[in-house]
Simulated assay, not measured.
Amino acid sequence: MFTENRTDEAHAALWFLGQAGFLLQSGEQKILIDPYLSDSVGKSDPRFTRTYPVPVDAAELDANLYLVTHDHLDHLDPETIARYPHKDRTVFVAPRFAARRLEELGVPRANIRVVDHGEKCEVNGVKIQGVFALATGRDVLDTTGYRVELPNGKSIYHTSDTAFCSLVLEDAPYADVLLVCINGKCGNLNVEQAVQLTEKVSPQFVVPMHHDVMALNAENPEAFRYFCAVRGLEDRCRILKPMEKLEW
C-alpha cells in the first residue's frame, strides 16, 4: 500500500492511522508509532467500540522501527502486534514497562530498545529522544513522548497521552511536525492546552490526534483548529483523515 507513495530521502512523510497511530517514512526508513489497528478496547468495554473500520491491516505493514509510547490497548495493542509479520527484524522502542509487555507478546528481546523520557538512542541513523509526558494513570507511569529525527534532519514529536503541567511545556523539544493529543478526557490535554504546547514547540506543522476512534473519548479537531487560529497558528494546523498523507 505504501510502496506506491514512496518519499525520497530529502523529504519526509507521515500517514495518520487513527487514534495516536502514524507511519513515518523517508527513503528506506519506515517508522510506526502507536498503531491501533483492531478493536481491542471495544472488546474489553463496548462503550469504546471503534467508530470506523481499521484503515489498514497490520499484516500489510513493514517498518524498520516500531515505537510504543505506553502500555494502553490503543497504543500497545496486542492484536496489532500479533498480526504484524516482521517482529523478528523490526526494532521496537518503548519505555521500560511497555518493553516488558512487548517481550510477553513475542517480540524478541534482542529487538527491543528501552527509551524512557530523558533517554536517547540511535538506530540505523534515526535519532530517538524520550520526552517527558505526565502519565494519565498509575498503570502507565512510564508513559513517554518521542522526538524522532531522520537521517536527513526531518523530525517529529509525538506527545503520547499526557496530562498538562509546566514540565510538559518546559521539556517539549522543537520538531518540524508536532503530533499532539487533544481529546481532553481520561487526563489528556484538551484543545486549549494542546495549543499552548504547540506555541512552545513552534513546529512547521501540528497534527491533532487521539480524537477520532472512540465516541466517548473523542473531540472535534475543528475546535483545535479554532484555538490555533486565535493564537495565529491556523496555517500550521493539519487535520488528517485516516490514511491521509502529510509530506514536508
Rank of each mutant, 00 (worst) to 15 (best):
L169E: 02
T143Y: 02
P151Q: 04
D71Q: 08
R138T: 14
D161W: 13
G106N: 04
F224W: 05
D77G: 07
T198K: 10
P35R: 01
Q129V: 10
L65K: 09
T198C: 09
P85M: 05
G21I: 03
R113M: 09
E247S: 12
H211M: 04
R47A: 11
V206P: 00
G187A: 09
A12Q: 15
N5H: 14
A135D: 05
I112M: 13
D39N: 08
S202E: 11
H158V: 15
V213N: 01
L102R: 10
D39S: 05
G145R: 04
T49C: 13
D45M: 02
V195W: 00
S26D: 04
Y36R: 06
T162K: 05
Q129L: 14
P108M: 07
L233S: 01
G184C: 12
L167F: 12
D235F: 06
K185G: 08
A99L: 04
A20P: 08
D8L: 11
V168C: 06
G118P: 08
T136P: 00
R101H: 12
A58G: 09
Y146V: 08
V123L: 06
E219S: 14
L67R: 07
G130I: 00
L216Y: 10
C181S: 15
L23F: 01
I33P: 06
E170N: 12
S44Y: 14
R100D: 14
H117E: 04
E104F: 05
M243G: 02
I112L: 12
V114P: 09
E170Y: 09
K87L: 06
Q19C: 14
V191F: 09
E9R: 13
L102Q: 10
F227W: 12
L67Q: 08
G18V: 04
V115G: 07
G21N: 07
E149V: 15
F97I: 11
L73W: 06
D74R: 12
V123H: 08
A110V: 14
P78Y: 03
